[in-house]
């Protein structure tokens, strides 16, 4: 049987050019035509292959600054890759604290726009609409522009849209930190019920328990390098080992 891939990436890498004096205008470029720019290259991701099968739940672990977020952005098609090729089948959603929303639009408009971007038809949004509103607990503010919302309300709305609409491929970056305890519990329940089955999920988390509980396979990143990609247990062990050494070293010092 042929396996269907949600994402196939071959030899992808990413380098960021960080300049102190950004040549952001025509004027600046003209005046500094002969001055070499002092761009600092940061190799955020070393060349790697990465593929995700349809319906899989993939974990992504690594310490801060190791390239997890960069990798999710490339795999979701938000950033272009510098080398290699990437094939994405379906709509993607990059979610750290929800979906993209415009502050100029009302909650209702944002629900429609965001769900549509995630690949839903207007009819489907009509059906889901009440569910999204009730889940976010924002019934009485539905026609208010979200620039007047508190940050908690915004987060709840964004999360609710993401949870209920859902793209084909979801990148979840530390999502279990939204809202109060009650809301978190609700979120986890939806996550388990509808996403683990049926959707392709890439889960970024520092919580070992969450990765261990949900992921079939896990990738371990270290300094922009894909150290290991496969069995979750093994990846977590590698991660723990590396971190232990750091802790011991700091103790010696």
């Amino acid at each position: 049987m042929k396996t269907e891939y949600a994402i196939q990436a071959k030899n992808i890498s990413k380098t960021f050019h960080i300049t102190e004096d950004a040549h952001n205008t025509v004027k600046h470029r003209l005046f500094n035509l002969f001055k070499p720019s002092k761009a600092k290259k940061v190799l955020a991701l070393k060349p790697m292959d990465f593929e995700v099968k349809k319906g899989e739940c993939i974990g992504l672990i690594g310490s801060n600054g190791c390239g997890k977020s960069t990798l999710t952005r490339i795999l979701s098609g938000v950033y272009p890759t510098d080398t290699g090729k990437i094939n994405i089948n379906g709509t993607t959603m990059l979610m750290n604290l929800g979906v993209g929303m415009s502050h100029e639009l009302t909650a209702r408009e944002n629900i429609y726009v965001a769900s549509s971007v995630l690949g839903l038809k207007i009819k489907q949004v009509d059906e889901l609409f009440d569910e999204i509103v009730d889940f976010a607990e924002l019934r009485e503010f539905i026609d208010t522009k979200i620039k007047y919302f508190s940050s908690g309300m915004k987060a709840r709305l964004a999360f609710s849209i993401a949870v209920n609409a859902g793209a084909d491929i979801m990148f979840l970056d530390e999502i279990f930190a939204v809202g109060d305890m009650k809301f978190q519990e609700k979120a986890v329940r939806v996550f388990e019920m509808s996403w683990i089955k049926g959707k392709t999920v890439i889960l970024v988390s520092h919580s070992m328990d969450i990765i261990q509980k949900y992921c079939n396979r896990t990738a371990y990143l270290k300094n922009g390098e894909l150290v290991y990609y496969g069995d979750t247990e093994h990846a977590l062990n590698l991660y723990k080992q590396d971190n232990q050494i750091v802790v011991e070293e700091s103790l010696v010092l």
């Binding site: 979701s76 098609g77 938000v78 709509t91 979906v99 929303m101």
Partner: peptide
Amino acid sequence: TKKYLYEYSNM
């Protein structure tokens, strides 16, 4: 101005 539409997805 429309960054919110494409910074979270592959639209």
